[in-house]
Computed example of a mutant assay.
Amino acid sequence: MGDKITSGPFFIPLFIDGTSNLPVDRLLIGLKNPTNQTKTVCVTVDRCADTIFPTTAPESTILNQQVTLPSEHCTVLRIFAGPTTFQGDNMLRVTVEGDTDKEAEGIEVALFGGNDGRPTVTMVFKHEDFIEVDED
């Protein structure tokens, strides 16, 4: 499908910061097409449930969504926490494949996790924080 970038693995904290009891209740994946052409990507979010070595857990896909954006358009994919999506202490990895790359010649990506607009610092990723996936 084209270029592939990833957030790499990151953990969902139990609470959005050390001073509140607000759990992380959503993950937002922002997509922006700053180019003058329509672009398409496939967004995948994979989850590993919390396990401690030597125990292991299989990875499961909680989102696999194709998105087509016209020139100069944007959208946000939203995933709410829950037993079939993610919970605190889970590990997630967001991958975007298609018309995107690190040089932003395609769709740009941003992640935000938190609770009702309050961010969890460890779950904020700007486009430049993503890494290219080399599948050679």
Results as ranks from 00 to 15, higher is better:
G114F: 11
G2F: 04
V45L: 04
H127W: 09
F86Y: 01
I12P: 01
I16S: 00
G30R: 13
V24T: 08
G18N: 12
Q37R: 11
V94C: 04
I62L: 01
P70R: 03
T55H: 11
M1H: 12
P13I: 02
T100P: 02
K32N: 15
R26Y: 13
L22M: 09
L77R: 09
F125M: 03
T40L: 05
K39E: 10
T61Q: 08
E135S: 15
L31T: 03
R93N: 14
T75Y: 06
E132I: 10
P54K: 05
A57H: 06
A104Q: 15
V96Q: 01
M1R: 12
T85C: 01
E103F: 10
F125A: 01
I12T: 01
Q66Y: 07
I5D: 11
F15H: 09
R47I: 03
P54E: 05
S7V: 02
P58G: 03
F53M: 11
F125R: 08
L77H: 08
S71H: 12
T40Y: 03
H73M: 13
F15E: 06
F130H: 06
T51N: 12
K32V: 15
R47N: 08
P23I: 05
T19Q: 12
I131M: 06
L92W: 01
T68I: 07
L63H: 00
F130R: 05
K126N: 15
T56N: 08
T35Q: 09
N90L: 05
V43S: 06
G114T: 10
I16T: 03
I131Q: 09
E72L: 15
T68C: 10
N33K: 04
L14Q: 12
G8K: 01
E103H: 10
E105K: 08
D46C: 02
V24C: 08
V24F: 07
L111I: 07
L27H: 10
N33D: 07
A81E: 03
T95D: 00
N115H: 15
T68S: 14
P70Q: 05
I62W: 00
E108I: 13
F10N: 00
V94Y: 01
T85H: 00
A104L: 10
T6F: 03
F10L: 03
F53C: 11
L22P: 02
D101P: 10
Q87C: 09
I62G: 01
G106F: 02
F86N: 00
T61G: 03
P54Y: 05
G88K: 06
L77V: 08
D25S: 15
S7L: 06
E135M: 14
H127M: 08
I107M: 04
V43I: 11
D129W: 11
P58Y: 00
P83N: 11
D116H: 07
C48F: 09
T120V: 10
R47W: 03
Q66H: 04
D25P: 07
P58C: 02
T100M: 04
P9L: 14
E108N: 10
T55N: 14
V96E: 02
N90P: 06
C48G: 10
V121T: 14
E135L: 14
N115R: 12
L27S: 10
M123S: 05
V121E: 15
G106T: 01
I12S: 04
E97T: 13
E135Y: 12
D99Y: 07
N36T: 11
A49E: 07
V133T: 11
P54I: 05
D25R: 15
D46Y: 01
G18M: 08
I62V: 04
P70T: 02
I62K: 00
M1P: 13
T122W: 09
T19D: 12
E59C: 05
A104C: 13
